[in-house]
Amino acid sequence: MRPSTDIASARAGPTPGRFAHIGDRAWGWGLTILGGTILVVAGLILLELGRVAAPAFDHIRIFRFLTSSDWDPVQEKFGALPFIYGTLVTSIVAILVALPVSVGLALFLSEMGPRRLRPPVAYAIEVLAAIPSVIFGLWGLFVMVPWLREFLQPALQRTLGFLPFFRGPMIGLGYLAAGLILALMILPTIASVTIEVLKTVPPALKEGALALGATRWEAIRIAVLPYARPGILGATLLGLGRALGETMAVTMVIGNSPEISASLFAPGYSLPAVIANEFAEATGDVHIGALASLGLVLFGITLVLNAVAQVLIMTVARGPRGAKA
């Protein structure tokens, strides 16, 4: 709730004029400068990225950059398709797994779960959110990958092996491993935003459905979820943004192989992973520039995603459109 306008103007100090206190003016200016630094930081990020990437611009044609699979820095050939492909595939796998689980988690914590179980589960999700990504990578590499290799991948191939996604040699590392570990990491993001969104749904809607003789799930299905849908979409986009930019856990389990393959069992690469692996020992400004250009692509995509997600979440908080008095 925004405070009344009186207090809002008092916050900024009394209106400048004959009685303006010098302290208020200085305070106001000081704060404005500090607030402006956010914009400066944003501009700085954009400019620096561009500057580091610039040496590569002469050597890259955008079309070739985005569609060629030939990444050979020594020969100054920069085709980023395998990385883009890998980033997209792992993120899609992550969303496909994380979305239902997160919504289930959110529903459990706000509607359907036994009340006594809610605080410990909520706490566990907070713990999940706080774990550094390199530790996820460690666990993924030494625990999840062998499990995939010995158990899940053979099971998937037995049952769904007719699909191109589940064919080929099963080494554990690869798109599937990266997608699954990403799903685990973005669960808290999607779940917590979804819970906030569910809280903004007016309880009268659920009551209305229950009064018609709906079961608890039906009331959620017809009254709560449709209302919350844009917000859940926003939460998903936030999760997607996080998945796209995730580096360490992915690079530790994806296999780091710049090949494109339809099979999820195959090793691959991703945009953040290649930057992480090659940047420190990059050969020359052009190579660095190319890697920074990959960073620009990543920056642009996550920027758009986060902006759209913010708008969607605010839409739900503001209430349904077209409501008349």
Partner: peptide, 21 residues
């Protein structure tokens, strides 16, 4: 209770139509 609420309906203080329908 679910079947009961079909036989005993309720109208609330503030109108609460389903906004997405």
């Amino acid at each position: 209770p679910v079947t009961l609420r079909r036989r005993v309906g309720m109208v609330f203080q503030r109108p609460n139509p389903f906004p997405t329908m």
